[in-house]
Nucleic acid binder design. Structure first.
Lengths: 258, 258
DNA sequence: CAAAGTTTATTTGTCGTACAAATATAGCAT
DNA sequence: ATGCTATATTTGTACGACAAATAAACTTTG
């Protein structure tokens, strides 16, 4: 029946949700600074007209984001939130939708291409030397492939050169997703390599060389080619293949053990 | 005293934190699918050896991320989390550190340069036509500046062309931050324009033209120049200026009204 | 026998109370 | 004035109770 689907229950927004929103608004609109004290829980609950437990469920969310910290007797104090704390917890291939998985993979490529500029602006000789060391330590597998660890270490350093903490954290957060995709979709990646003959993609070594004596534009083009292996994953055709190749076993809640 | 600062209290990790982590591990390691039922709160609390209130504070966090949904009698069911739900709540200039503010601004530029490739691959004629319409509706202010709204609308469409939902959401989330920076640091931006003579940056109109008849590389270079106005914000010199120019009034918790 | 209506049982959402642990503050002693 | 002690306050945790919603079982009716 249509009415079933269209019915506006809006029972989805619970008291806790409303309190959370009110608290955020309150903090935003008062000109609080990090370190400032908030009213204690009893006062807040009374002012909001809810039980302390409800208030605490809302506060728990803000605490997770690092927006508030609390200690007995001292009370609650405001802090600078970590904007990535939420994402960090659920960025796991076992929890995410396949759409998000691919979108994140795609975003990583977007960032790595886009940050070439930052890398060129901010790189120091010491950092380039470090990159070179990392490359020298790498052990090549077949087909110009590196181990996930080597791959990760090199790219991590690139992120660090940007000096952008949010970007650096994103690498840490995204990395497990890449490792997962590389491991679980290797057939698709290999198939693609055979299909295209895998035209010589620049290696990490090549990238360092360009970083030392090339131009930004050359570096960006090389980076794009270096990452090109993953491009086709975002075509609709391959999206469907990934969906088909992936099936998880179901567990009824009754069988679930805690 | 040294011992005060070095003391490992670790009283920072509360029971709720541990329960949250256990729940996440439990969900990740069981092969749950979206829609599957979780054990009810009573069972979970008993299995974890904590009070229901503690469990619920942990669950509240997972609910915020969209990982679990619950309805009376039906119980709790697993869902696909929204990886950006946490960030969305605290991405506000009034809550963030200035460091994060600049890092996010920088990340936006990285993404907009990096996504040029995606845009070229995915653009349709209809979308380019839409972009053109948007540009035609724009009303120029002085100095080749557009209103925040016009600026936002054009760039929003660019994000949409990537067809990447995470990227599209990021635009929505980041946008208030840009608007804020544009409004509050206009002196610094203007000063820079005078200093450099503001060498003709490509306009939105120019970008659309390149999108219609240019190459990816040209588009990327133009985009970089289009955004160049903001580059200097990330220099240390300007970072300090921003810090100096920004001061918020403090409120003691006793004066705070709820 | 089938369909519709009714009752029951279960589960989440909310409220309230109580107490332990930590610690800032005030009071006391030296 | 300084150091110790007692007190009061505030968060963290536990427990119990009930309302609201609703799935499931049961009853009635055609």
């Amino acid at each position: 029946m249509v009415s079933d689907n269209l019915k506006i229950t809006d029972q989805t927004t619970t008291l806790v949700d409303k309190v959370e929103e009110k608290l955020l608004d309150y903090i935003k609109e008062s000109n609080f600074m990090p370190g400032d004290s908030l009213p204690n829980e009893k006062e807040l609950a009374e002012a909001l007209g809810v039980a302390r437990s409800v208030l605490r469920e809302a506060l728990s969310r803000l605490r997770m984001m690092g927006l508030i910290k609390s200690r007995t007797k001292k009370g609650m104090t405001l802090a600078e939130p970590n904007i990535l704390n939420g994402m960090r917890r659920v960025m796991d291939p076992r929890l995410m939708s396949k759409g998000d998985l691919l979108d994140v993979l795609n975003l990583r490529i977007i960032i790595e291409i886009g940050m070439c500029n930052s890398i060129f602006i901010n790189k120091t000789d010491a950092e380039v030397a470090e990159l070179e060391e990392i490359v020298n330590r790498e052990t090549a597998l077949q087909d110009n492939m590196r181990s996930v660890e080597d791959e990760s270490m090199f790219h991590k350093k690139l992120y660090e050169i940007t000096k952008n903490n949010v970007v650096i954290q994103l690498h840490q957060i995204f990395n497990p997703v890449f490792a997962y995709v590389k491991e679980h979709y290797s057939e698709i990646l290999n198939e693609y390599k055979k299909l295209t003959g895998d035209p010589a993609r620049p290696t990490h070594h090549d990238l360092v060389d360009i970083l030392k004596s090339g131009t930004v534009e050359e570096f960006q083009v090389a980076m794009k080619k270096h990452l090109s292996l993953y491009f086709h994953l975002f075509d609709n055709e391959y999206r469907q293949k990934m969906n088909a190749s992936k099936k998880k076993s179901r567990l009824k809640s009754s069988e679930a053990k805690v």
